[in-house]
Design a protein around this nucleic acid. Structure first.
Lengths: 217, 217
DNA sequence: TAGACAACTGGACCGGCGGTCAACTAAGCT
DNA sequence: AGCTTAGTTGACCGCCGGTCCAGTTGTCTA
């Protein structure tokens, strides 16, 4: 980022205009009914420019999401605890999930757009290539890596990698996204916290049966 | 189901041929690169027939999924414990989640197809209708309702509705789906079980901090 | 068996999409 | 001012989901 100067002034201006227009449209319409042409028109540029800058629909969405999540990434890497390094894994994970819910909540349709874009992903000119290795966007990569590492740090006996996918995946679900749009971010964060607390508290593998803990009802 | 006779013989034959062809294609290709024309051709019928029978892409996918999950639904409603009524909520939930993972695992691309179809959902002739109430397919409805009820039965203090969405949503995540395709269904079921056990075990709201339980590392 | 009718069928057709490209334009260097 | 080259553009392409109606065929009645 902040490269010497490989980008011309008008190009930079257009790139920002496109990003702005995209988030503008995203805040008003469902992502799957926003076409690339609409975005181009709203940004006041030609469609070709959009594709030249971002390569594809997914490229655009990823770029936008990355921009939005940049502050969070910095905070996690070098910021103060509990988000940044220094706090115990439990607290860091809770803080991180809270932060993610916040980011997602403030960027409602964006995750859904990412998911939708991922569906029609894959350059069409790359013939074959069926299998798709499945790297994922760098942003998702970072989020997943961080969560996974925190889980593993606290509970090496758990499958942190998979649990991180599960936690992150739940944010892509339509009903959850809709709830976020209704402003119930705190409700989601609360349940996620409960889930994490339980995950860290349970002795793993051992079902709750026979537990003397206060049984409800 | 098993209606008196509102469906002609050839219509029934074609419906099954289309369903068969769809699952056949679904098992070989990623859902988003299967077009309705391909399905029609594979089933040996015209494209119009497919749309006449199922209304839309999503209608097809829902019908297929419903067919696949019918046995499970019956087992839950009237079958023997622990899946059916009679067992305590914990065991029923674990059994149900195991069963769902199994169904999803055996129908790999189907959930993804549903998700993808849901993106472009909404009859185009229904002008306006922006907001979309968001009922969801009856299948998802049933799954969510069952999980939600079991959670609430065992732990009324938790947000069963939301937690059910989170649990179900995690199955739609791309990385999880990919893992299922690699045959790691048991790994997923195991982590889900751990998550549920923790959810039921934790006293809710209370973070794991200060817990004397064996802290790793 | 014959006739009639509705359900069903198929594929040409439509609007619109994501993505491409070659001709054009202008920013930045000297 | 003139040149180089990144940047821009919109017509264009192939394809897709979905529609439509003329033609076909199963089924019911007599």
């Amino acid at each position: 980022m902040t490269e010497a100067r490989p980008e011309r002034a008008d190009a930079a201006r257009n790139r920002r205009a496109i990003l702005r227009a995209t988030e503008e449209l995203l805040s008003r319409h469902r992502p799957e009914q926003i076409s690339m042409e609409q975005i181009a028109a709203a940004a006041g540029v030609g469609k070709g420019t959009v594709f030249h800058r971002f390569g594809s629909r997914m490229g655009l969405m990823v770029a936008l999401m990355q921009e939005r999540a940049y502050a969070l990434e910095e905070a996690v890497r070098t910021g103060p605890p509990p988000l940044g390094p220094g706090a115990p894994p439990d607290e860091r994970l809770i803080a991180f999930v809270d932060a993610i819910v916040d980011v997602v909540g403030r960027n409602k349709g964006l995750l859904a757009a990412l998911g939708h874009a991922a569906s029609s992903a894959g350059r069409p000119d790359l013939k074959g290539h069926e299998g798709d290795d499945g790297d994922g966007h760098p942003l998702h990569r970072f989020w997943h890596g961080h969560i996974s590492a925190l889980i593993t740090a606290r509970r090496p006996d758990l499958d942190g990698d998979l649990l991180a996918h599960i936690l992150l995946g739940s944010l892509q679900s339509e009903p959850v996204l809709r709830m976020l749009e209704r402003g119930e971010a705190e409700r989601l964060a609360g349940s996620l916290r409960a889930l994490i607390a339980g995950m860290f508290a349970a002795p793993s593998g051992e079902p709750a049966s026979g537990e003397p803990a206060g049984n409800s009802v």
